[in-house]
Simulated scan of single mutants.
Amino acid sequence: MAELSERSGVPIPTIRYYLREGLLPQGRFTSPNQASYDEAHVHRLGLIRAMVEIGEMPIATVGKLFRHLENPSPGGGNDDESRTLGLVQYALVRQKSSSAGEDPADGSDVVSTLLERLSWNVREQHPARSVLAAAVGNLRRLGQDDILALLDRYAAAAHELAEAEVALTLARTGIDQRAEAVVLVGVLGDAMLGALRRLAQEDVVIREIGVPTDSTASATSDRPA
């Protein structure tokens, strides 16, 4: 386990915790108090870290996903694979504690109209519906109609990116590999997209108002550690 910890960068107590919670498969016991771990364990730890540390997914949710992947529904086939990948993606959506539909001033109507107009095939139970509706509702309450007017452009950019992401996912072989792609695109892909968006915004601001790059760098370096 010490070697597994060194190679994965995960502390031994954390590895033991993941083992207890069933997130990490048990190693092959070589003695009553010692087990052997392989590359699959190192890989699984990297995936868990991405989900928990970057994606901020609850341990219980991560465990549920792994259990579903290890014990798929009987019958298999495309329907079960679609359901499995859907469950993985739904688990990545961070929802608010209250439902967006409880507030009559929310954006549920805007979301439904948008999806219908774009002819997107989206299940009613997709949790991202309520997340988007809450964002739309907040913009409405704040009177930010100009930001809300960007919704179609957000949708166009998102769909173009989704086509590439889904193609990448389906190019992988087997449900495990495809589910892992959904997780990594959802967690690390979101992180990259968010970071690139902020970087692009700074570039556009500097181009538009002519702030020198060295001034920006100086302001950044002055931030407290």
Rank of each mutant, 00 (worst) to 15 (best):
L45K: 11
S130W: 06
A128S: 14
E116P: 07
S108R: 12
V131A: 10
L115S: 09
G137W: 06
A105I: 01
R94L: 01
L85K: 05
P74F: 04
Q89F: 06
V122M: 11
D109Y: 10
H126V: 06
S108E: 05
P104Y: 05
P127Q: 05
E81K: 09
R28C: 09
G46C: 10
H68T: 11
L24E: 03
E70D: 12
K96R: 03
R28S: 15
Q89G: 01
Y37N: 13
E102N: 05
S112C: 12
R20Y: 07
G76R: 09
Y37W: 14
N71E: 02
S31E: 06
D109E: 13
R20C: 07
I54F: 13
L85E: 00
R83A: 09
S97L: 05
M51V: 07
S112R: 15
L69S: 05
E70I: 01
A91R: 02
D106C: 14
S36E: 15
D38T: 15
Y17M: 13
D103W: 07
P58T: 06
H126Q: 09
G27L: 03
H41D: 00
Q26M: 12
V110T: 15
V122G: 12
K96Q: 02
Q125L: 08
L118D: 09
D38N: 15
Q26F: 09
N121Q: 15
Q34P: 08
H126T: 05
T113K: 13
E56P: 00
Y18L: 03
V62Q: 02
H41M: 02
S82K: 08
L24Y: 11
I59K: 02
H68C: 04
T113G: 11
G22K: 13
K64M: 05
A133T: 10
S73F: 08
T61I: 06
G101K: 09
P74I: 03
L132V: 02
V88G: 02
D38P: 13
L115N: 10
V88H: 02
R117P: 06
L92E: 01
A60V: 09
L19K: 13
R123C: 04
N121L: 14
V88D: 00
D109N: 11
E56G: 02
H68S: 10
T113E: 06
A50V: 02
M57G: 02
Q95L: 01
I54G: 08
V131H: 08
R117D: 11
V88K: 01
S98G: 04
T113L: 06
H41F: 03
R28I: 12
A50F: 07
V136P: 04
L114Y: 12
E56R: 12
W120S: 01
A40D: 11
E102W: 04
Q95W: 00
K64R: 11
I59A: 04
H126R: 10
A100T: 01
R94P: 00
R49T: 10
E39G: 14
E56Q: 11
R49A: 13
E116Y: 13
L19M: 13
S73K: 11
L85I: 04
G46T: 12
V62T: 06
G77V: 07
V131D: 01
Q26R: 15
P74K: 05
A128K: 13
S97D: 08
Y90T: 00
W120V: 00
D109R: 13
H43V: 01
R83P: 00
E53P: 05
